[in-house]
Simulated scan of single mutants.
Amino acid sequence: MDNRTNLDDYLAGLGISDADENAPPPPTLEMSAAPLPTLEAAHEEPRVVLDRFLKGLTARIDPSLTYEIHEAEDALEAEINGEAAQKLAGRDGRTLHAIEVIAYTVLAKQAGRSDLRVRVDVGGFRRRQADTLAKLAERLAVQVTKSGEAHELQPMPAADRRIIHMTLKEHPDVMSESVGEGAARRLVIKPRHG
C-alpha cells in the first residue's frame, strides 16, 4: 500500500476525506484507538463533533492526554493537558495551529458551522505565549515612548498581533497598527502624539 492511500485512509478516519472509512488505518496507528468522526455524521452539534475529533486525536497521539472543551461566544475552546501535551505545540506553535485548522475543517464539514472558530491550547502554551507577547508590547511601549521613534515588529499571525493591539489599546503614550499584506503583515508601535 502506498503512502498516498495511507494518508487518504487516515484523513477519512478524521472525517476530512472521501476515502473509504472501512480501509485499515496506517500501520503506525494503534488499532485500539477511539473511532474518529465519519462523513455520515453531518450537521451534529459542534461541541459533539469537536469532542469526538479530540477524543480520536488524543487517543492516537497519547492515550494519557486529557482535554476539556468550553464554549465561548464565537468559538469552541479546548485545552489539552497531560505530560506530553507540551510537545503538541510544536515549534513556534505550528503543530498546535495545524490541529486548530484540522479541527475547524472537521467542525465546518460535520456540523455545518464554518462561522464557529476553534481555539486549542496545549499545556497552557497559548496562555504563556500571550503573557510573553503582552510583556514584549509593554517593553516596546517604554522604548518607543523614550525614543519617540516607531518600532516595527517581524511579521506575525493575526492572533499574536491582536494580543499586542489589545495590550496597547489604552496606553496613553503609544499606539499600534498593522501594516502589510498576508503573511508579511506586521505591527508598528508608534508614539500616540506627535
Rank of each mutant, 00 (worst) to 15 (best):
residue 100 E to I: 03
residue 87 K to I: 14
residue 73 E to G: 00
residue 81 N to M: 11
residue 92 D to A: 15
residue 97 H to T: 13
residue 109 K to P: 00
residue 74 D to R: 14
residue 104 Y to W: 15
residue 119 R to W: 14
residue 107 L to E: 03
residue 97 H to F: 13
residue 79 E to V: 10
residue 77 E to W: 01
residue 85 A to C: 10
residue 122 V to Q: 06
residue 109 K to L: 15
residue 101 V to R: 05
residue 75 A to R: 15
residue 121 D to P: 09
residue 81 N to Q: 15
residue 84 A to W: 00
residue 105 T to P: 00
residue 110 Q to V: 04
residue 84 A to K: 14
residue 99 I to F: 05
residue 111 A to H: 03
residue 94 R to A: 15
residue 118 V to R: 01
residue 95 T to I: 13
residue 109 K to F: 08
residue 111 A to N: 04
residue 113 R to H: 08
residue 122 V to T: 15
residue 121 D to A: 09
residue 81 N to F: 02
residue 96 L to K: 12
residue 98 A to R: 03
residue 100 E to W: 04
residue 98 A to H: 09
residue 99 I to T: 04
residue 76 L to P: 05
residue 104 Y to Q: 15
residue 95 T to Q: 07
residue 90 G to M: 06
residue 81 N to V: 10
residue 85 A to S: 15
residue 109 K to S: 14
residue 104 Y to V: 00
residue 114 S to V: 01
residue 115 D to A: 03
residue 117 R to I: 00
residue 86 Q to T: 07
residue 78 A to G: 06
residue 101 V to M: 13
residue 99 I to G: 04
residue 115 D to W: 02
residue 102 I to P: 01
residue 110 Q to G: 04
residue 94 R to T: 12
residue 95 T to W: 00
residue 89 A to T: 09
residue 75 A to F: 01
residue 107 L to S: 08
residue 105 T to F: 00
residue 78 A to T: 06
residue 79 E to M: 13
residue 76 L to A: 05
residue 98 A to E: 11
residue 103 A to K: 07
residue 122 V to H: 07
residue 103 A to V: 09
residue 120 V to T: 06
residue 106 V to E: 07
residue 89 A to L: 08
residue 79 E to L: 14
residue 121 D to H: 08
residue 89 A to R: 08
residue 120 V to Y: 02
residue 73 E to H: 05
residue 82 G to Q: 12
residue 119 R to K: 13
residue 116 L to W: 02
residue 80 I to T: 10
residue 92 D to N: 15
residue 111 A to T: 02
residue 122 V to P: 06
residue 87 K to G: 10
residue 88 L to P: 07
residue 83 E to N: 13
residue 93 G to E: 11
residue 102 I to Q: 02
residue 119 R to Q: 12
residue 76 L to T: 03
residue 85 A to F: 10
residue 76 L to R: 03
residue 73 E to T: 13
residue 110 Q to S: 06
residue 80 I to F: 09
residue 112 G to D: 06
residue 77 E to D: 09
residue 95 T to C: 05
residue 115 D to S: 03
residue 91 R to N: 09
residue 95 T to E: 05
residue 112 G to S: 07
residue 75 A to G: 03
residue 114 S to P: 09
residue 112 G to N: 07
residue 118 V to A: 02
residue 111 A to M: 04
residue 111 A to L: 04
residue 98 A to I: 08
residue 89 A to K: 07
residue 120 V to R: 01
residue 91 R to L: 05
residue 110 Q to Y: 02
residue 75 A to I: 02
residue 88 L to Y: 06
residue 87 K to D: 11
residue 109 K to N: 13
residue 98 A to V: 11
residue 82 G to H: 11
residue 86 Q to W: 09
residue 118 V to T: 04
residue 94 R to C: 00
residue 101 V to T: 14
residue 93 G to I: 13
residue 77 E to C: 10
residue 96 L to M: 12
residue 92 D to K: 15
residue 96 L to W: 12
